[in-house]
Design a protein around this nucleic acid. Structure first.
Length: 290
DNA sequence: GTCCCGTCTC
DNA sequence: GAGACTGGAC
């Protein structure tokens, strides 16, 4: 087992170099933290940063979002991507109102039970807002640990085991553990990046097992190649939903047809959007849910 | 064109 | 464990 990470160097680097992001402001409450973490699941921080304040101004509490018309929630979600997250966020707001007395739960298992909240998001809220001690493991953290601790260039597919691995290297004190978790994420986002790591400015380069081994090429399993977006069902779904966000009336199949001329794929896209609850078919028309 | 990268479903 | 799911950056 390689030596321990220099945690003091890492924490010091974070304090000096962290980006000034809205959700790191001290006045961000538990709800704001949860909303921002859901948005950050699939979307770059810079894009979330320009949307989060507008969202929280409109729906400052779970009760406000629970009562909102779903079509307005989808419109406000805009082009953040993966709009099923917006539906699940509203479902989560309703669950918080109904099951948790309008307060975002602190307990990790209660958070995990909320729709759209998985291993990363549940612990991010418990750690970054409530200050509890848990491993917060996203892809950045897994890559940093893979390199610095295990001497591997890449992390390979996510495993449950990763949580225990990270937990083992966190300081015992919850506040210190929280800083290390956020610092590992920030290091992976800014310095220990996937494609062009900037080892010359890395605060833990001297202890990095991958660097010490001479940057061996990664031999393990890789995530499968992502299929093409152009011409995909994903693109067709996005095209239909974008059109519906832009109007406040249902669109007929005839109005949608020119936007995605291939009939079979357009129908499949509308059908899968309806199955997800993102659109409603009514007669020969398609609309956003009320 | 390639990469990004958490949750859910199967 | 594998694949679906968006839109934008590079």
């Amino acid at each position: 087992m390689p030596g321990a990470l220099p945690l003091n160097e890492l924490a010091g680097w974070y304090r000096a170099s962290a980006r000034d992001l809205p959700w790191r402001r001290p006045e961000f409450d538990a709800w704001g933290t949860l909303v921002s973490e859901i948005m950050l699941q699939q979307t770059q921080a810079a894009r979330v940063a320009v949307e989060i304040d507008r969202w929280l101004t409109r729906w400052p509490t779970p009760a406000d979002l629970a009562d909102a018309p779903t079509h307005e929630v989808l419109r406000q979600w805009g082009t953040l991507g993966y709009p099923r997250r917006a539906l699940r966020l509203q479902d989560t707001a309703r669950a918080i109102v109904e099951r948790h007395g309008r307060e975002v739960p602190r307990d990790v298992d209660a958070l995990l039970a909320l729709p759209g909240v998985g291993d990363y998001t549940a612990r991010a809220v418990a750690v970054f807002h409530y200050g509890d001690r848990h491993p917060v493991v996203d892809t950045n953290v897994r890559r940093v640990i893979a390199r610095a601790v295990h001497g591997q260039g890449e992390a390979g597919p996510a495993k449950r085991r990763d949580l225990a691995d990270v937990e083992a290297l966190l300081p015992a004190e919850p506040a210190e553990a929280s800083v290390i978790s956020i610092a590992l994420m920030e290091l992976g986002a800014l310095v220990c990046t996937a494609r062009a790591p900037r080892c010359e400015v890395c605060p833990i380069a001297a202890a990095c097992a991958w660097r010490a081994a001479g940057y061996p090429a990664y031999e393990g399993k890789r995530a499968p190649r992502q299929s093409r977006f152009a011409g995909s069902d994903r693109q067709a779904r996005g095209t239909v939903l974008r059109a519906l966000r832009g109007v406040d009336v249902p669109l007929t199949e005839a109005e949608l047809a020119p936007l995605w001329p291939e009939d079979e794929q357009r129908e499949r896209a509308i059908g899968s959007l309806a199955a997800d609850g993102l659109v409603v078919r009514e007669g020969g028309s398609v609309r956003l849910p009320h």
